[in-house]
């Protein structure tokens, strides 16, 4: 938006400890990448919550459409053979 005085929005993803998944924390406004990263730092890590930050322009996020939820997600529900509990193990077998 050309007339917007508040800069573009960026989505912020935080890693709270080394090795952990990055989790969406919220968003910030910024005019460039460096500013986005610094603003995310100053906004979302005030209590030592972060070890690493990703920022992504909000308009670069592609989201699934809730209307598609049935075709997207339901077909996976009956594929129980993808889970280890589906299999019958002979009694006495160890470390499997």
């Amino acid at each position: 938006m050309a007339t917007d005085s508040q800069f573009a929005t960026w989505e912020v993803f935080m890693q709270t400890k080394p090795g952990a998944n990055y989790i969406h924390a919220g968003s910030v406004h910024a005019s460039d990448k460096k500013m986005a990263l610094q603003n995310a730092r100053d906004t979302y890590t005030r209590r030592g919550e972060g070890t690493s930050i990703w920022v992504v322009p909000s308009d670069a996020i592609v989201a699934s459409n809730p209307d598609d939820n049935e075709m997207f997600f339901d077909p996976a529900n009956d594929k129980v053979y993808r889970l280890p509990t589906f299999y019958v193990m002979p009694e006495g077998a160890k470390a499997i």
Binding site: Q6, H29, M35, Q38, N39, D42, T43, R46
Partner: peptide, 11 residues
């Protein structure tokens, strides 16, 4: 000038 900068300067 913008809310985010307010937090930065306070930090």
């Amino acid at each position: 000038p913008i809310l985010e900068e307010d937090l930065a300067l306070t930090n």
